[in-house]
Computed example of a mutant assay.
Amino acid sequence: MRNIARYWIAGFLFLIALVSPAQAQTTQKVVDIPTRPGVTQRMLVLSPPAPRAAVILLAGGHGGLQIFPNGSFNWGAGNFLVRTRQLFADQGLMVAVVDAPSDRLSPPYLSGFRQKPEHAADLKAVIAWMRAQSKVPVWLVGTSRGTQSAAYVATELAGPEGPDGIVLSSTILTDDRGRPVPAMPLEKIRVPVLVVHHEQDGCALCAFANVPVLMGKLENSPRKALLSFKGGENRGDPCEAMAYHGFNGLDREVVPQIADWIIAR
């Protein structure tokens, strides 16, 4: 029995050792901030000690995460950016996972709203809050339809009101339901832009062959780069998070490279 207890304790201590120091010290809380008159914006905030930068994570799809007060999600828990939020924090980044605003908490949520002035106003308030809390550069990171939010806001907000940089992962490059990212006035973006894309992305709206068009339109960005990936796992709907589109199986490869590029500034 003593040997069994000894092995159990040793195994328990080993599991504790696997938890990174950053993860052990990261705090998590749900925050609601006022944005427009009568409207609040809910987000799940992860705060590591002494963050080196801050990221606002914008999920794809309809964007209605429906974050509960305890920090769990009614929808979107498997989304690439939602599921990797702790990995971003482990890299020394303060993280905000953003829900739909209080006046968009039912269908269609953010669908049809991502390129509206009200959406820019909501994210302007989030950027200001994150900047005040973290005292470090604040970046917008969008994936799939979240790239339409990130790119739109970067074309609408500049200077202290806007982000210090943006990351576009699995960018919407063509769109039969609205304006894709390359069709936006991207020449207005004058902050660093990192494009992250899977070369085997099977989503019809995100064909890797169309990425050069996007890169060519970021003409006034002071620093831009493309991170491309291959492999991983490809399951289910090609436009969903468990396919190549969502970098399934590559989280621990993709996130550190994004964080390194952000911090390198």
Rank of each mutant, 00 (worst) to 15 (best):
K124C: 03
A53S: 15
V39M: 11
A96M: 07
V98H: 04
G78K: 01
Q41T: 09
W129H: 12
V141P: 01
A121W: 05
N79I: 07
I127K: 00
V97E: 08
G146T: 07
F68A: 11
G63Y: 11
A77P: 08
R83E: 03
G71E: 06
F88L: 00
W129Q: 10
R52S: 12
Q133H: 13
E156T: 15
V39S: 14
D103R: 14
R85A: 10
L140M: 13
P51R: 12
S72I: 02
R131M: 11
S111V: 05
D99R: 08
V95D: 01
G60P: 05
F68S: 10
R131Q: 09
I56L: 11
M43A: 11
E118V: 07
V97D: 10
F88E: 02
D90G: 08
A59K: 04
P49T: 12
P108W: 15
L81E: 03
A132F: 05
V97W: 15
V98M: 06
A151T: 03
G64E: 06
G146H: 07
F73L: 04
S47V: 10
Y109M: 01
Q86V: 11
L123S: 00
A77L: 04
R83V: 04
I127T: 04
N70T: 09
A120E: 14
Y109F: 15
G112T: 12
L57W: 02
R114C: 04
W139L: 09
G76Q: 01
A132P: 03
R104W: 12
A120H: 13
R145N: 14
G63N: 05
L44C: 01
